[in-house]
Design a binder for these strands. Sequence first.
DNA 1: GTGGTCTAGACCACC
DNA 2: GTGGTCTAGACCACG
Lengths: 132, 132, 132, 132
Amino acid sequence: MQFQINPAGELPIYRQIMRQITEAIAGGRLKAGDKLASHRELSEQLVVAPLTVKKAYDELEALGYLETQRGRGTFVSERLPKPDRARQGEQIQEAARNLLSQAYLAGLEYSDVLKVLEKAGRDLTALKEREA
Amino acid sequence: MQFQINPAGELPIYRQIMRQITEAIAGGRLKAGDKLASHRELSEQLVVAPLTVKKAYDELEALGYLETQRGRGTFVSERLPKPDRARQGEQIQEAARNLLSQAYLAGLEYSDVLKVLEKAGRDLTALKEREA
Amino acid sequence: MQFQINPAGELPIYRQIMRQITEAIAGGRLKAGDKLASHRELSEQLVVAPLTVKKAYDELEALGYLETQRGRGTFVSERLPKPDRARQGEQIQEAARNLLSQAYLAGLEYSDVLKVLEKAGRDLTALKEREA
Amino acid sequence: MQFQINPAGELPIYRQIMRQITEAIAGGRLKAGDKLASHRELSEQLVVAPLTVKKAYDELEALGYLETQRGRGTFVSERLPKPDRARQGEQIQEAARNLLSQAYLAGLEYSDVLKVLEKAGRDLTALKEREA
DNA sequence: GTGGTCTAGACCACC
DNA sequence: GTGGTCTAGACCACG
């Protein structure tokens, strides 16, 4: 697993890490039961403080995506949450509105948005094959 | 124009205001030349500090979405920016990836995502007719 | 609100803080919407690092007991969670088993356990009147 | 004797083992003089490191619940401790407060708590008959 | 002044 | 080695 963070980005570092992990799960590059790099190891890769990575792991654990076992490591949860249809639905709606309004402001048509979406779908799963 | 803000949300209040204004422009509820409520007026509506609204207006002005005319008020810019294709493109890609991974994690199919997107498109423009 | 922590206790400090807050809510000494001391303030009272208090607040927020508003403070959640009957039920069962086995090992009868429980009930709500 | 451990639980594994043994003693499933499985045997059953089981046995021995006889094995102590009334009393009080506040937060009435407590009492002794 | 984030470093508990 | 906790101090974003 390879991650990229941008320390100057608009998202806090720990949220960038969270997002990349959830995207890796969504894209199939991380599967239930897989072991993640220790937060110390990953912190070296990313050149950030260990606590910063740990915070990302902790939040994802609270959300049900990860599980940790003392002394053994951190793993992708075996039973990924299908949480709170209502709340989840809201977030997805918001993500969709966000995508559309940005696209329209940039002058894109609906058909362009669909193209962007398809490209994103390919990106999400691309590394899977490449790494296999 | 009616706005909704959530003081406990993860986004800063001034960013929630910015987003709603840009979405209103994207959805056609605000058009080039339209006059916005003064930041004092809007701050009363939303029950937030006037400085918070002012900051949202200032940032949108810096981005080219709004124009202020001393003593007359704040208006939607006549020449909306088509800024920085590269940067814009990246943001849209990211928004698309974000939408897709959230949807996949919630167990939705690609066809579901399309439905969500269509609904979001209708939402974005719905108030236009209702308010007209 | 007055808290007591024991830095040498078997529970981590942040968990002692969490427990005292949830007990205060259960006992009615903290009500929905009440403002808590800022994490900095409380950290001075308890003579612990601010981050330690913040961690307690963060976890309670993730659990739905607290809500924070940037720049304004941290509040008892208006809609306290009635979460996950199953999981909650398990925890309560475990707390009950724990109480009983400790009591039996100490040689108490069932009737003694009931007395202890009644006393605990009075303790939980006692400060409410005293502080009022 | 059958034990259940949860490697992802919030309690360390050795404490989960300790608790289950003391609960078995409290519930009468283990009596003074009974022989326990060797720590190697038990470690295989539970799929944990032998050192982890040994630590649980050692701690219970230090507390006076178990006795080891070189070359013969580990046994439930003939004279179970009635230790430190004061400290024990405190712990029981705390367990009671913990039970009550969790129950109240889940919306249970006092009468519900009593039902839970009775059920826990039955659970604690149930396996006794089944295994006999 | 409030919360939000990050760092560097420490010590412990566990496996 | 792993995660778990804590500290002291820093800077920023927000209201």
